[in-house]
C-alpha cells in the first residue's frame, strides 16, 4: 500500500516559476525541428520486418532506385545504425555528407537517391560505439540511438521528396523510435521470405507496429522461387487485409522494382 504524505513545503506544480532548464520546451523544439524538416516530404515509408536476413535493405535500396528512375525525388534514411548497408548498396560509401549552415546535406547516391547512413560516418571496419562508461551503456545506448535517428530526420536537409524510405533493422524497437518522432503515422512495407518462421516473426512485428499507429501498405515477399518454401506473404496479406506488393525472386528483373515503385 502506498502512503501519501503531504510534504511540509511546496511541490513541483505549486512553484509558479518555469523549470529553468526548460527540458519540456527543448523536447518540443526537437519535435518541431523534425516536423519542419519533413514538411516537404510527401510520404515517409518505413521498410521493416520482424526477421533478420530477409533482405530489407536490398529491397529498400532497389525500390529507391526504381522510384528515382521514374523521376520521383526519393530519399533513403538508413536507420540500421548498427549494421548499415544502404551506402554500399547504392554505391555511395565513399561520398561524404556535407555541413551547410544548420543542416547536413545528404549524398546523391545511385540514380540520384538522396542518402544518409551511419556507414558514411563510421571509420572503416568499426562498429557504432558511443563515448561514456561501457559499464552502464545498457542504460543509455538505446536513447543515444534514438537521438541519432532524430538527428538524421531533423538535421538532414532532405528537401522536397515524393517519398522518404526508412530502412529499419530487424525487430520493432527502431520502428517505435521512428513512430515517436514522426509528426504523422508512418506507412510501412513489410518484408518477409516465404518460410513459416519468417511469417511468424513478421506477424508479431507487423501487429505491434500497427498497434503503434503504423499504416501497412503491404507485403513484399523476397527470395521467392529458391530453396525457401511456404505461403508467408499470402498468409500475412490475408490476416492483415493488405496486398502482396511484390514477389521478388533471386536475381529479379528491373520490372519487379518498377512495378513495386508504382505501388508506393
Amino acid at each position: 500500500m502506498i502512503c501519501i504524505v503531504r510534504p511540509s513545503f511546496r511541490t513541483y506544480h505549486e512553484l509558479s516559476e518555469p523549470d529553468s532548464s526548460g527540458v519540456v520546451d527543448q523536447i518540443g523544439a526537437q519535435r518541431r525541428r523534425v516536423a519542419d524538416r519533413l514538411s516537404y516530404v510527401r510520404r515517409v515509408v518505413a521498410v521493416m520486418s520482424g526477421k533478420g536476413g530477409v533482405g530489407k535493405s536490398f529491397v529498400t535500396a532497389h525500390l529507391a532506385r526504381a522510384v528515382a528512375r521514374v523521376g520521383r525525388p526519393v530519399g533513403l534514411l538508413d536507420a540500421d545504425l548498427d549494421g548499415p548497408t544502404a551506402a554500399r548498396l547504392l554505391d555511395a560509401r565513399e561520398r561524404r555528407l556535407t555541413l551547410d549552415g544548420d543542416a547536413v546535406l545528404p549524398v546523391a547516391a545511385a540514380e540520384g537517391v538522396k542518402l544518409v547512413s551511419m556507414d558514411q560516418l563510421l571509420a572503416d571496419g568499426r562498429a557504432l560505439a558511443f563515448t561514456g562508461p561501457d559499464r552502464d551503456s545498457h542504460v543509455w545506448r538505446g536513447t543515444l540511438e534514438a537521438a541519432a535517428l532524430r538527428e538524421f530526420l531533423a538535421d538532414v536537409a532532405w528537401g522536397a521528396l515524393d517519398v522518404l524510405l526508412v530502412d529499419l533493422p530487424p525487430g520493432l524497437q527502431r520502428f517505435q523510435q521512428l513512430a515517436e518522432l514522426l509528426p504523422a503515422p508512418a506507412s510501412v512495407i513489410t518484408v518477409t521470405i516465404p518460410t513459416p518462421e519468417s511469417r511468424d516473426a513478421v506477424r508479431r512485428a507487423l501487429g505491434a507496429a500497427i498497434g503503434h499507429g503504423a499504416r501497412p501498405l503491404g507485403i513484399v515477399e523476397n527470395m521467392v522461387g529458391g530453396a525457401f518454401h511456404g505461403d508467408a506473404a499470402d498468409a500475412l496479406a490475408e490476416e492483415f487485409g493488405v496486398p502482396v506488393l511484390a514477389r521478388v525472386p533471386f536475381h529479379p528483373p528491373d520490372a519487379v522494382w518498377t512495378d513495386l515503385a508504382a505501388r508506393v
Binding site: 561524404r96 547536413v104 558514411q120 560516418l121 563510421l122 568499426r126 560505439a129
Partner: peptide, 8 residues
C-alpha cells in the same frame, strides 16, 4: 568510432 573526415 566516427572517422575524422566524415563530414565536409
Amino acid at each position: 568510432t566516427a572517422k575524422d573526415d566524415a563530414l565536409r
